[in-house]
Design a protein around this nucleic acid. Sequence first.
DNA 1: CTCGTAGTTTGACAATCGCCGTACTACGAT
DNA 2: ATCGTAGTACGGCGATTGTCAAACTACGAG
Lengths: 120, 120
Amino acid sequence: MSTPARGAASGRQLPHPLPAEIRLEAVLHALADPIRLRIARELADGHVDMACIAFDLPVSKSTSTHHFKVLREAGVIRQHYVGTSRMSRLREEDLEAIFPGLLPAVLEGARRSPEAPDRA
Amino acid sequence: MSTPARGAASGRQLPHPLPAEIRLEAVLHALADPIRLRIARELADGHVDMACIAFDLPVSKSTSTHHFKVLREAGVIRQHYVGTSRMSRLREEDLEAIFPGLLPAVLEGARRSPEAPDRA
DNA sequence: CTCGTAGTTTGACAATCGCCGTACTACGAT
DNA sequence: ATCGTAGTACGGCGATTGTCAAACTACGAG
């Protein structure tokens, strides 16, 4: 039948690392990319939960998916489905517990830097 | 004296970015590598100035040179020659002024993490 | 001057990364 | 049931990265 009954509204599950599995190198690597840093900054700036589409990123859909996946697998964001949209949120509390002060420092630094100098 | 007047002890010069040129992405990228993170941690742990050879890194000489260069060009460390040895030091004050709290948070995180999970 | 030590440079290689387009799946609405 | 929307998965491509070995330079000691 069409409705598989196995999913419900939260049908699709997404793998997230446990706090103990979050690696510093992975977090730093995830945030070292300009686009991912921008995503993190936008998530931090007021918006608690945002759908991927809400970000106006200068890349294709597949690349977007890729960047969100890197952030999620590094433990920087948490994602869950709402309908066909995927909501993203910073794992601020988890990260604060594991690497105190790290995320705030990065985000504050990102706010000061003019986004990116000009890589054209 | 046999040594000519052209060099003195600080003969070879090394390019360092000015504080204004230090980019957050570059710093994060530099510290996202396990070996470079380890270098930074060892530099922070008590040793103010260290020669490259003082680090017992599991890589070849050329790779060492490469990693130190990445750290220097990102603005994380400052280097100067003493004889044939190159001394390295963390740019803690510069970084603190540009990205307050970032370096301490990273270093503290590096101390907690068991170096590297086990990449064998 | 000669030699050894410390580090650099070059060039190569495999692996990863960021990016894209296309084809596909899941959900909601009609 | 059908369609549109939101996002995923699967290659594929060019650029960057981490690694090494080999040849080289710079300094200090004897």
